[in-house]
Simulated assay, not measured.
Amino acid sequence: MHRAAVAEVFVTDAVVLGEDHFLVGSQWPRDHALYHPDAQRRSDPLLFAETIRQALVYVAHWHYEVPLGHRFVGYDMDFEITDPGALCVGGRPMPVELEARWQWTDRRPPRRYGARLEVALTVGGRRCGRGSLRVVALDERSYRIIRGRTGRAESVPVAAEEPYARLDPGLVGRLRDKDSVLARGSAAGEWLLRPNLDHAILFDHPTDHLPLMVLLEGFRQLGHLMTHSPTSRPGSPALTLVSAAVDCLAFAELDVPTRLVVREKATAADPTAVDVRAERRLHLDALQGDTVVASCASVWAPVRLATAAERPVGLTVP
């Protein structure tokens, strides 16, 4: 899974259904330090994104015999939760299945393997989402050649003493100070992506650039900040992330400040208004200097509380 910690491995098994067709099993925890359930006890959608990533890596090594030492570089990822009610956390870990289809996009063994994995998400027998991930797996020599083109083969972290305090975790939908990855930038409407490089989940093992999942976490936190106004009326429905599409356009270096900006935002009813009761669509960019290194189109939708019939056995909603 390209994970150092056993506790962060969510994929449990896989079987072959046909040519380039698989069923991947996973178990999502009832709680997680970073990917914790929301106030409505629904699983974090980024658990789905991380499971897609792990499924691709597992199938690549297990079935297609991509060498274990290859470096995986993400090009794009997208996911959509079509039935958020299926993600209610119950009294036991959540049984998850991904029906996955593999497509080669650039296969040049033994040094380069490009592929896309398309998945359909089922939780407890209930179809509730879809997603995909496209990557290239490179041997060490090929990876160093690509990284050498940027002039940053040995990227180092941004100096820790830079005076940018991270936002309060509650403002970005997280529980712990260390989980906040955003700081206010020097210009209005601009934020800095400043993750803790010692974070045991975001940086589970050493890396020379910001991983796709760290960029996605930054986009998610900024989306939460934009869609959850502290002045919202009591009883207003919360918004939850139901889809995201991330494009990685360049390596995001550790030693260059990363700015996040919202390029457009709109509601379904009025593209100029902000209404917490309506669906919100956000397009966010991550920039280093004047270069866009990644972009994300996301959709945030009002949360409907699950009915008693929809809740898993053992779930109590206060």
Rank of each mutant, 00 (worst) to 15 (best):
E217L: 04
V9P: 03
R152V: 12
R311P: 01
R149G: 13
V214R: 00
E140R: 10
A187R: 15
F10G: 01
A269K: 05
C248N: 10
E161H: 15
V299D: 06
A244Q: 12
R144E: 08
A153W: 03
T207N: 09
A14S: 14
S232K: 13
P110N: 02
V256G: 04
G90W: 07
L216I: 05
L138H: 00
V256K: 07
R127A: 15
L193Q: 02
R174S: 03
A269G: 11
Y113W: 15
G131Q: 05
V262A: 02
G235R: 03
E217F: 03
D13L: 07
D179Y: 01
E19I: 10
P195S: 06
A301E: 10
H61T: 07
L121M: 07
L212S: 10
R141D: 15
P84H: 00
R107L: 14
E154M: 13
V242W: 06
A55D: 07
D83R: 14
Y64N: 08
A100F: 04
R53T: 02
P237R: 04
R101T: 12
T105S: 12
T207G: 07
T105W: 02
R3F: 06
G90S: 07
D106C: 10
D270V: 09
H21V: 05
G74H: 11
I146Q: 15
A137D: 03
R263W: 07
P67F: 02
D247R: 14
G314R: 11
L171K: 12
D179R: 01
L133T: 08
R311Y: 01
D13V: 03
A188E: 12
R130K: 12
T150H: 10
A120D: 15
W102M: 03
G85W: 09
P271I: 10
A294R: 04
R304G: 07
R280F: 10
V57Q: 10
T291K: 11
T307I: 05
W191R: 06
L216Q: 06
S180A: 14
H32Q: 05
L46S: 12
S26H: 06
T51G: 11
W102H: 01
R92E: 13
R92N: 10
A5F: 13
D204L: 11
V313M: 11
C88N: 09
H61I: 09
T150S: 15
W62H: 14
S229A: 08
A153Y: 01
L182T: 02
V313A: 14
R147L: 09
H61G: 02
G124F: 02
P234A: 03
A14E: 01
P318G: 00
A268I: 06
W28V: 00
A297S: 14
Q288H: 00
V293F: 06
Y75E: 10
